[in-house]
Structures are given as C-alpha cells and as structure tokens.
Design a protein around this nucleic acid. Structure first.
Lengths: 265, 265
DNA sequence: ACAAAAGTGTTAGCAGTACACCCATGC
DNA sequence: GCATGGGTGTACTGCTAACACTTTTGT
C-alpha cells in the first residue's frame, strides 16, 4: 500500500463558501522633526476605523486584495490612498493569519515602506494650505502608539525590529532622504532609527569606505562650515533580499513622483 | 472636502465569487549523506503532481489552508503528511502571490523547515523494511533540482538563501542534529550548508565562546580519539525572529516525536 | 575672536583567520 | 609505532570604538 500525498493545488479547491479573505496592509515609516526638538523621530500614518470590528480604533492603512492585483501593487495603492505619496522603499514584512486575529478569518499580508521626509512635509503643507487634510488619517510617533485595532500593535513592533535590523546591513536609510544629503543628515537618520548617538568621525569613514555614496560638488551652507552633499550610488545593490531582491516588479523609479490621491468615492 | 480612507476590512468584504485561494507550502531541508560521499548534502522532499496544472512535475509539499487552521499548523500538517515526521525548526519564509504564478489566483504562504537527519534516516529505513514507501514523494539534492511546478524553483532558491544567511547569526544548525552531538558533527553541518570547509580550531572556539552549547560527560567513541558530546543550551534564545520569535505557538517540544503519517484518503 | 560643525589622525581592543603544535585513541 | 582526528596556543589582520585634533564657516 502506498501513500498518496497532495501537493499544492493538486486536490480540489476549497469550498466556495470558504470565508478566508486576503488583505494587504502596510506599515509606513517616515522621520518627522517634532517642533522644537532636535532629533527626528520615527512616525507612521494610521487610519481611524469607521465600523466594527474595532470601530473608532486606529489601524494600519490597507484593504482587501483585488483579484487581479499584485500584492506589492495593493500595498502601493493603499499607501497612495492614505498618504498621497509613493514609497521610496517597499518590502513584504510577514503574512499574519492567526484565526483569532479578527472575528472572521482574515489573512493579512503586511508590507513595510519608507517615505522621504521632505515628501511628507510637502504633502502636509499642501493639505494645510488647501484645507483638504484627510480627517481620518493621522501621524503617530512610532514609540508612543495607542492601542490599535486587531494585532496591529504587534505588527508595528515587528516592522520596527526589521527596520532597526536592516539599517545595520543595508542602505535603506537613504529611503528617508532626498536625492542628495549631507553626512550629518544621513547620520541623523541612523541615530533616530537606532535611538543612539553615533560618532561623526567613525560614521563618516564607515559610510565613505562602503562605496555606497558618491560625493557631489555641491555643499550645504547656512550654518557653520559648509558640508559636502552626497548621493546614493545606485550601482552597488547589496543583496538585501537575496534572490528576491531584483526579481520582483523593478519599480525602482523615482520616489519623488507623488501619487495622485484618490478622492472619496 | 475630506478624503475617506479605508483601513483593512473596514469596507465591505470582497465578492464571494472572488477566486483568490490561500495555500500553504513548505520547503523542507535535511542533510543526507550520499552513499560513499564524505560530506553530507542539503536535500528536500518533493511531491509529484498528479494533475494539471503542471501535471507530473515535482512540487513543494503543501495544500489548501483549512478555514479553521493556523498557518503554521497547516505547514506542520502537510510536512507530516509528506514525510511522517515533525520538524525541528519551522518558520515562515514568504508569501508568494503573483497573478501569473498559477492559472487561477493562488496566494501561497510558504514556510521552511528543518528535519533531523537521524529522523529522516530512520523513517526511510522503516519504509524500506515495511515496503510502504510513498511512491510520489522523493528526496532531491537541493543543488540539483529539476524544473519544478509553478514558481517553486525560485522559492527553493530563496529558502536556501535564507538558510545560508541564518546559519551565520543563529543556531538553527542544531535543527539537523539529534540531542547530543560532537563539535565535528556540528561543524560538518555548517560546512554542508555554507559549502566551504571551516577551521576546526576556530570553529571550536567560536561555538564554545558563544555559550550556546553545554558540554556533556559523554564521548563519541569509535574512531581515533573520543570526542566530547555537547547539547544545545535552550536557555539562550537569541532573538532570531525579533518580536515574533517566542510569541507564536511555542510548540518547541520534542522534535523526536514523529507524526503518524496520514494514509491515503 | 569664538562657537560649532566639518573633516582628519591615532590608538586600543576585539573578532575572525591561518597555521603550528600537542593529545589520545584504533589499528 | 603511526595515522587520524580531537583539542590548544599564537601571531596576524581588519574592523570598530574612543577621542584628540585641525579646518572652515556664521555671528
């Protein structure tokens, strides 16, 4: 007698009444400088839920996965709908599917993203000027979140852990910055993420020696001695995500191109 | 005018005719010593598909996610159905959901697992003795796979990358070994995974200094000078998976407890 | 002139590597 | 005895942390 083993989708499909649904959510990080404070802090946008379950709770931006939509596109879409911006970095975080995380069975495929600080500031200023700020979206300090809907607190914790880890062996810190920046600005990003001061001298040597930065001929002036501006060297792509790194939709375009926010339907 | 932004499951559920289905597959690694060869090689079990799409192709073990089944349980279940064993290590790898990866939309949440070599050898010997070896399951050398069904070749590549990475900063190598083992056996595991020889002297110092091993009073005899047996120190759990590390089902029980393979239905 | 940030130099310590060497056992 | 793997000692190298120091600007 021999075993008969099933492989994926070899057997009949699940019954159509299967209530398992797939959602895509995104933990969106940026760095914001609180008025008066010297060090920027990690912030993320949250959406206030309008109905049960968890009505009135804050939740991660997200939505149901469209049948003909790539996972990463769904993350980009909801990110754009929430912030009106395009991410400078986007990566899958984890698939959360515990049975009890929602009254009905929901599999959430969660992404995490970075937004350039200047993009965010510009968008907020524009909303302020036009008076059309979305009223159910708010930016929160990542270190002081309220109780969120579902398991979203745990999800943010995990995303923070990944960010802090990844900043050590990859160059994602550039995701918060515009095309050119000073070493002090880059160091400030690292300090905000890692929550500790770094030696300017050693930081300079490390990052200069890594070959990931190209010095420009421009300088940032304004206070004290002018600082040279650098830009990211796109030639060196370290194998951050292994074989997945370059394979998926290489939408490594311009992060400066803001989405057109979809207005209320 | 204000934007109305949806958060996950705030809006109405997708139409019930939505054909998106969720599957769970697992890349299962073990180390097998090819007859005569001195160095063990990474191997994984594959399942031959019996129907289209990709009929007769080899594929990763997996199946549809049951509505009332945790993701990790689904991985354990199909792993047990395929091998008759329980994994010594199990972790989520990635959620693959490209639209064109299957004729119908399938989201595959893929796990990766380790099996103890001695468990696998015992199971194979038992099947040989009883003559009930499953005919549609076969072990393949991870370095020389045929063309697999769906995107499973890319998935295995990614799993291999994760394994090779993780062996550097965590102690998953023990997942291949029984409760007690010599340093040479542990080193052999590292050498097989990393595909390069390691200096025995330096390897000893590194692993002894890490505090992850506890020396026992037993020795492995048989050839030349007896070698001390060590066992894994379960007290030191390095934060492999961050906040997710200890939270999920802490089924860190005995890997020696083999599943009862479910026979053909 | 002075404060403050940009940028350079120097040193100590630590981890990884290479390799020479002794120890204990089976044959 | 001798081959073989177990186990120890030691020197070298490269990276990091710490910190003294020079340079260049705004005020």
């Amino acid at each position: 007698m021999t075993l008969t083993i099933r492989s994926e989708s070899a057997a009949s499909a699940p019954s159509p009444s299967d209530p398992t649904r797939v959602a895509v959510s995104t933990v969106i990080f940026t760095l914001r400088r609180p008025d008066g404070c010297d060090l920027p802090v990690l912030s993320l946008p949250l959406v206030r839920r309008t109905r049960d379950p968890y009505g009135d709770f804050w939740a991660l931006p997200g939505g149901w996965l469209d049948a003909d939509e790539e996972l990463e596109d769904a993350a980009s879409r909801t990110l754009g709908e929430t912030t009106g911006l395009a991410a400078s970095y986007l990566e899958q975080l984890y698939a959360f599917g515990a049975i009890d995380r929602s009254p009905s069975r929901v599999i959430s495929i969660v992404y995490w993203a970075l937004l350039r600080s200047d993009d965010v500031d510009a968008q907020l200023a524009a909303h302020l000027a036009a008076g059309d700020a979305p009223e159910n979206v708010e930016w929160f300090d990542a270190a002081h979140l309220p109780t969120l809907a579902f398991d979203h607190n745990a999800i943010v914790d995990y995303a923070l852990w990944r960010l802090r880890n990844k900043v050590g062996y990859s160059r994602i810190a550039h995701g918060f910055l515009p095309g050119s920046f000073t070493l002090a600005e880059l160091r400030e990003v690292y300090e905000a993420i890692l929550e500790r001061r770094l030696d300017p001298a050693n930081f300079r040597r490390q990052v200069e020696g890594s070959g990931t930065l190209i010095p420009t001929d421009d300088f940032r002036t304004g206070s004290h001695r002018p600082a040279r501006l650098y830009r990211y060297n796109h030639d060196v792509e370290l194998s951050d995500r292994g074989p997945l790194g370059t394979a998926p939709p290489a939408s490594r375009e311009q992060s400066a191109t803001p989405h057109t926010p979809k207005e209320a339907r």
